[in-house]
């Protein structure tokens, strides 16, 4: 498996650390309530198809990235820096 780091280019999967769904970018406010925090931390969809998830280019440039990929076909559709996803709301 290979992932397209927006900084380093296509790299082997072993350089990356997998985190989880990109919903983790949407951190609730401190007083958002127990349900919002429970959702944020624990509840995840398990989509058959397109999904966006977070990877850390740990053995590379150190960037956190958002990868869009298809869980059925294993196709990797794109990746953007997490800082940009957060700043602009852009999708990979």
């Amino acid at each position: 498996m290979r992932l397209p780091c927006p900084l380093c280019g296509d790299r082997d999967r072993r350089e990356f650390y997998y985190q989880g769904h990109a919903v983790m970018l949407e951190r609730p406010l401190r007083d958002a309530g127990a349900n919002a925090w429970d959702d944020y931390l624990h509840n995840r969809d398990n989509p058959a198809g397109e999904t966006r998830d977070l990877w850390h280019h740990e053995a590379g440039c150190g960037a956190w990235i958002v990868v869009t990929r298809n869980t059925v076909t294993h196709e990797v559709l794109g990746a953007i820096l997490a800082e940009n996803a957060k700043k602009t709301g852009a999708q990979a």
Binding site: C8, R11, D12, R14, E15, E58, A59, G60, C61, G62
Partner: peptide, 10 residues
């Protein structure tokens, strides 16, 4: 230049 793995090392 590239940041990568060298063996098990970054």
């Amino acid at each position: 230049t590239a940041r990568t793995l060298i063996g098990h090392m970054t």
